[in-house]
């Protein structure tokens, strides 16, 4: 479990990025952190693997206070995937890229090859094993960067803006991968994003932030259909929610808190069956 309690963070420049944030994230949870630029999302995320240490308050990762452990120690539990893969890749081959992470984090020589093989298979990268990461396309490099974190099997995975600059199919593949990590491998997945549609379609819990504070924290269909929260976070309603808001104004039997097609179908089924009776 990750426990964040009354977290404050002040940058060296004097800018206060977090002003008392408290969040609890259980094992195996899947959540999104949203909010406008400068709201403090990335600052918050950097506290999860100890890249930043609290100015006030504390962050506990499975009971470990981040102030007492190095980034390397915390990275065995919390994998942080940065937005830009080019800040990341440096090795001669994809295989060595993964080996770098595993060796740093203290995995033994005997388990490294099988971990690499499994991760590359999972991410559909096996054919690139001996290729230079610099010779790959943008989307492939992004997957290598993801593989370089996932290979260490962290219990918590933090992804900073993973959908930026990706086409629809890449996004869908990413969503399927995250869902598998979450459902099958029971990993907690924390996604920082501006992508309302992506979050609405795939992520069950949403936290929104504004000016270093948490504005809302709850089920995605409650958070992303609340006009007030949406406006404060510089977001836009998901298209389907916009439609259901309009329908709700016409007929109050139709629910408003619908954020994806699945929920919409369910609502329709309920409405038609009650009509029949």
């Amino acid at each position: 479990m990750i426990e964040i309690e009354n977290l404050w963070y002040v940058y060296e420049s004097g800018f206060t990025a977090l002003k008392g944030v408290s969040i609890r994230i259980s094992n195996g949870e899947y959540l999104a952190i949203m909010g406008k630029n400068g709201a403090g999302k990335t600052t918050l995320a950097k506290h999860l693997n100890g890249l930043l240490k609290p100015t006030r308050g504390y962050v506990l990762i499975d009971g470990m206070d981040t102030r007492d452990y190095s980034v390397a120690q915390l990275s065995r539990k919390v994998g942080y995937v940065f937005q830009n893969p080019d800040r990341f890749l440096f090795a001669e081959s994809v295989e060595k890229e993964l080996m770098f992470t595993l060796k740093n984090l203290g995995f033994s020589e005997s388990e490294i090859p099988s971990l690499i093989t499994r991760t590359l298979n999972d991410l559909n990268l096996s054919q690139f094993r001996n290729r230079s990461p610099f010779s790959l396309s943008g989307g492939e490099r992004r997957r290598v960067a993801l593989a370089a974190i996932l290979c260490a099997n962290p219990d918590y995975i933090v992804l900073d803006e993973p959908t930026v600059g990706q086409d629809f199919y890449e996004k869908e593949r990413l969503a399927a991968l995250l869902e598998r990590l979450n459902k099958k491998d029971r990993r907690a997945v924390i996604v920082i994003s501006h992508d309302v549609e992506f979050v609405a379609d795939h992520i069950p819990r949403t936290i929104t932030m504004s000016d270093g504070l948490i504005v809302s924290d709850g089920p995605t269909n409650k958070v992303l259909t609340n006009q007030l929260i949406i406006e404060r976070s510089n977001l836009k309603l998901p298209q389907i929610s916009e439609l259901f808001t309009l329908l709700h104004e016409k007929n109050s039997h139709i629910p408003r808190d619908i954020v994806n097609i699945e929920q919409a179908l369910e609502a329709f089924n309920k409405l038609t069956s009650s009509r029949k009776r």
């Binding site: 980034v71 080019d86 770098f100 740093n104 203290g106």
Partner: peptide, 30 residues
């Protein structure tokens, strides 16, 4: 870049003088 590589367990201050210099390779290349 340093933040990103530290998140992969890189420890800059670890090892002998030569090792310390080599630790900077994953930062210099990107």
């Amino acid at each position: 870049i340093m933040d990103a590589q530290m998140s992969r367990g890189l420890e800059l201050q670890k090892g002998s003088l030569i090792q310390k210099a080599r630790n900077y390779l994953p930062i210099l290349v990107p």
